[in-house]
Simulated scan of single mutants.
Amino acid sequence: MLYGIRMLLLALHFVGVGLLGLLIGVCRPFNPANSPLFARLYAKPALRILGLDVRASIDTLHALPPGYVIVANHQSNHDLFVLGGIVPERTVSMGKKSLKWVPLFGQLYWLSGNVLVDRSNAFQARKALKATTRTLREQHTSIWVFPEGTRNPAPELLPFKKGAFQMAIDAGVPIVPVCVSHYAKGLNLNRWRSGRVEIQALPPLPTEGLGPEDIPALRQACQAQMQACIEHLDQRAAQG
């Protein structure tokens, strides 16, 4: 019963934000301020609807001026609501090109200035990578990336793809890892309090002076730090 009510309210909320967002997006298309605004519009009411308790320690995200790469683990479609409230100012994300065709959300995602990547087309993917590198370096805008490349609710992180690390090194900007406790499998939307989520932003990883040959070591170090942090967050969330 509670699950059905929540899904109905969430659907109405999703449509409402989509319509409002499209109106704003048409008035100021591709503005980097759009993405954080729309993320919060989606997230804050949705967390109340879902009954999720999100606790975030994200001082690192606000300690740096815009213009860095954020890497985070990706568990489910609910990440839009779980992470939406912590998106820093002037931050856009990278997503697959097929998102563009999701009714309302896809058009809003595009108008927000987010980067759509055709992963099946290597030339277009490289072109998008170069464009985001220029955005980092010249437009004082941060990029949010899910380095696993797909949703993964499992305890172990999937091997990170190199794109985020290549962008950061090419632009000479730091990488800020954001870790989220595993909530997707334990989420129970038939309970009034459906679950608890712990989020922590780690200290930035500098990239100045690094080159392409340093990508494997940087990628592995980042993944190891995030895996350890997520395991710690899982324990904290389980303790209530």
Rank of each mutant, 00 (worst) to 15 (best):
L50N: 04
L37H: 04
Q75G: 11
I24C: 04
G67V: 11
P36Q: 00
G95M: 15
P206Y: 04
G84Y: 02
H140W: 07
I5C: 04
F146H: 01
A164F: 01
T150P: 01
K97P: 00
P36W: 02
G25S: 09
L210C: 10
A224W: 04
V71I: 15
S142D: 06
L37T: 09
N73C: 13
L210S: 07
H232D: 11
H182V: 08
L158F: 07
V178A: 11
K44N: 08
V92P: 00
R40I: 07
V17S: 00
L104N: 11
A224Q: 14
S57K: 15
W192C: 13
R48A: 12
G67W: 14
L23V: 14
Y42L: 05
P29W: 12
A63F: 09
R137D: 06
V115P: 00
S120C: 04
M1S: 05
E138F: 10
G240P: 06
V71T: 10
A171T: 05
L80Q: 03
A33Q: 06
N188I: 13
L116M: 15
R191W: 05
K130G: 02
P147R: 02
T91F: 00
L41Y: 06
F38C: 08
R6V: 05
V117W: 00
N73R: 09
R236D: 05
K100H: 01
H74W: 14
L61T: 13
M167A: 15
C179L: 13
V197Q: 10
S181L: 13
T135K: 07
S181P: 12
G67I: 09
L111M: 11
K44I: 05
A11Y: 07
W192A: 15
T60R: 14
V102C: 06
I215E: 06
V145T: 01
R6W: 05
K100I: 03
W101M: 13
